[in-house]
Write a protein that binds this DNA or RNA. Structure first.
Lengths: 200, 200
DNA sequence: ACCTGAACACCGTTCAAGT
DNA sequence: ACCTGAACACCGTTCAAGT
């Protein structure tokens, strides 16, 4: 009980963790800078020593989210190296599960942070890692004849859009319940992705 | 200058219009109940005579948006009755343009309103109209052999997810600019939807 | 029935001050 | 360098009161 004059040595990360917890417990509308500070045990002005503003904290939470998503997808990809089409399906399923497991965090990751391109380079970087891994998986599928030849980036964006759209529509409860009664989200995903594969 | 003791006969719709204007001019973060009231020329408490809370106003703005989207898509569909695959492409393009034309309104339509299922039946109704029109277009394409046979609802959700995902990723600037330099959003859309059509 | 003005609790942000 | 407390402008919501 001597050295740390203040609260932590790493308030910045404590604030990010507090934000993630609040998102999980109370949703997007519960995420206020003052509540984050309270949960981290500091005054409401303390976060400004580490983040320029609320947008900046949200960018940090999003970046953290993209890195975790990358880890999960990478694990799924490594588990299915021998079967490229299944590798694609399983990584997509991991993406969908990431979204449904923690909807508020997923929403924050894909909204809110405007003009990121210039303002938050780590955010852009973390997001790009996921995209590039998808491009690699697509290229493997193409090389082994499971996906049609052509620019891998084009195919990757189409597939990402399909998976992301399914996640977004599911989170917003836009998928008719008559469909959800007959098919699991996983079935819907598999069905949507089947169209991309080469028939043989 | 005699009969209307107060401001309008139709404050409710004036508030919705004011909200839509603010969204277009200032984005989602600019949409406050007090600013909406100010723009409509009433006190900040007046909206509560017509809407239970801010969520309820947002639900009304979203419902209005879905009805306008329906009109635009219906017009596009009618213009391409003779060519089912092009009908599908053009309605999808209309959806994508609706999103990019007024990003803040589109974001509000597909977020924010939680637990709608029970709370805002007109919202669910307006959203369902769009889905049902898509199912009809898909059925026409199937009947004429342009889409594979099978449950039209499954194909419709896949296609909707692809188009919606493309719109969402574009709005969040998640599509790499290297891709956007080479391909217009319309090209990306056409490329993604080509995979659904029967090859022949 | 429809609207106003005051009031309350909450929020993001700034800033002088403390260690 | 890192944090606090007071202050300011803004917000959503309620409520008594006015027509």
């Amino acid at each position: 009980m001597s050295k740390t004059t203040y609260h932590h040595g790493d308030l910045k990360n404590a604030l990010i963790r507090a934000g993630v917890e609040i998102l999980a417990e109370q949703g997007v509308s519960g995420l206020s800078l003052r509540q984050v500070a309270l949960r981290a045990g500091v005054s409401h002005a303390a976060p400004y020593a580490h983040f320029a503003d609320k947008q900046s904290l949200i960018a940090a939470i999003s970046t953290d989210g993209f890195l975790r998503l990358y880890d999960e997808i990478k694990t799924a990809a490594n588990a299915h190296r021998t079967n490229p089409p299944q590798q694609l399906l399983e990584t997509a399923r991991t993406y969908l599960e990431f979204a449904t497991k923690d909807p508020a965090r997923f929403k924050v990751m894909f909204s809110g942070v405007l003009e990121q391109e210039k303002e938050y380079p780590e955010f852009v970087e973390a997001s790009k890692k996921n995209y590039e891994m998808l491009v690699e998986i697509v290229q493997t599928c193409q090389a082994e004849g499971f996906l049609p030849t052509g620019p891998a980036e084009l195919a990757a964006i189409s597939i990402w859009a399909t998976v992301h759209g399914l996640a977004a529509l599911a989170l917003e409860r836009q998928i008719p319940h008559t469909l959800l009664e007959q098919h699991s989200r996983r079935d819907l995903l598999n069905h949507a992705l089947q169209t991309y594969f080469v028939k043989r």
